[in-house]
Simulated scan of single mutants.
Amino acid sequence: MDLIWKAERSVTMREIMDQLPEASEWKHNTTITFLSRLINKGFLTSTRVGKAHHYEACITEREYQDLETKQFIKEIYKGSVYGFVSALCDNGDLTKEEIESLMKRLEE
């Protein structure tokens, strides 16, 4: 998805394969399977132009992050945003600046 979001246009399978990191061991069929799953989930569309399939995002990166965050909170914290934020505060991962920023956001 990152490759497609960064392109800001439809991309072909060849473009996707060319942009995968060299360390990636993904083969052509593995990539097709993964893209098919993203299409089935409604994250991508595929249009055939000539012999090539062109893949385009149906969801923005921000929309995807929101969706995944909600799913994470639902599954891990039983839907409790308070439980999630409490865990962030309790483990000391938040900086003073981040806490102040969150406080301002909550006041809005």
Rank of each mutant, 00 (worst) to 15 (best):
D2T: 13
L3A: 09
I4P: 00
K6Y: 13
K6S: 14
A7H: 01
R9K: 15
S10Y: 03
T12C: 06
M13N: 03
M13A: 10
R14H: 09
E15Y: 12
E25P: 04
K27N: 13
T30K: 09
I32L: 15
F34S: 11
R37S: 15
R37H: 13
R37V: 04
L38W: 05
L38G: 03
I39L: 11
N40S: 14
N40A: 13
G42R: 02
G42E: 01
F43S: 07
T47V: 14
R48Q: 13
V49N: 12
G50Q: 05
G50Y: 02
E56N: 14
A57V: 12
A57T: 12
A57E: 00
E61A: 07
E61H: 11
R62C: 07
Q65E: 15
D66C: 07
L67Y: 13
L67V: 08
E68W: 01
E68G: 00
E68S: 11
T69Y: 04
K70D: 11
K70E: 09
Q71C: 09
F72C: 08
F72K: 05
I73L: 02
I73Y: 03
K74F: 11
Y77A: 01
K78T: 05
K78R: 02
K78F: 01
G79M: 10
V81R: 12
V81M: 11
Y82V: 13
Y82G: 11
G83H: 05
G83Q: 04
V85M: 03
S86C: 06
S86L: 07
A87E: 13
C89S: 06
C89R: 05
N91K: 06
G92S: 11
G92Y: 04
D93G: 08
L94E: 09
L94Q: 08
T95C: 04
K96A: 15
E97L: 12
E98F: 00
I99M: 12
S101P: 01
S101L: 12
L102Y: 02
M103V: 13
E108W: 02
